[in-house]
Amino acid sequence: MTALRNLPMLVSAILLALVAIAVLAGPDAVPAAMRDGIGDPWEGFGPLHLLGTDQLGRDLLARLLEGGRITLALATMVAVLCFAVGLGLGLLAAILGGAVDTLLSRLVDVTMALPPLILAILVVAMLGSSIPVLVIVLVVLESPRVFRLVRALAMEIMTEDFVTAARLRGEGLLWILAREVAPNAVVPLVAELALRFVFALLFLSSLSFLGLGVPPPQADWGGMVRENAPALGFGLPAPIVPAAVIALVALSVNQIADWLVTASGRRGMGRG
């Protein structure tokens, strides 16, 4: 039964590792004939072009590997950055309390009251879509969620008896944070990091799909779906390939987060 329970997580982990290796190896890993050979637009799956070709006849697999670099790098960067911001400010609010806590919490309330997509579309329309703009928008949209979680977790753990005991023993704040609070917060935080990654991946891909994300000459998965969308009108699967890769990566990461959360007895909420 335990084996069955862990099966989806194991499959996900292996899949993610494969995707990571493939994307890190990049387009150079694809045989040159396949990578450089220009075929007809939207060829189907074939021996030369395994996944077919895109709207300009470029090899879809090579393009996927190239696009994966930017898509996954951006999603990872956003997840790590918003995590750092949320963690820092959340701890600050929980430990200092008072005016700092009130101010930060209000700020977070306001940010979360704004509809994320409308905000993103507006900012992109204003400043043009470039990679720094996308990263900043996503970090602003995502870090409030990390902030709330960290603040709640820290406040909950800080009132536990073992923390009081450590305090009475005369341990310093940093010692308490590192030795008592951190180990108890690790699982929910790692799960949250995974969820932030999924959110960033899906949001970024959606923006690119709408033509408001990673600017065109650069290949990225959401943009590839957009470029290849007309192929569907001819009954060709070209846009489904990059879309399926996004779906697969998102599902695998969610699966692992879900496993972590169930394993630690806390309930996950999925994305959002």
Binding site: V198, L202, S205, S206, F209, G222, V225, A229, L232, P239, I240, A243, A244, I246, A247, A250, L251, V253, N254, Q255, D258, G270, R271
Partner: peptide, 15 residues
């Protein structure tokens, strides 16, 4: 449900 929550709308839509 975990799968559907992970799938972007354009994936579900195009499939």
């Amino acid at each position: 449900s975990l799968a559907t929550i992970s799938f972007p709308e354009f994936f579900v839509g195009y499939v």
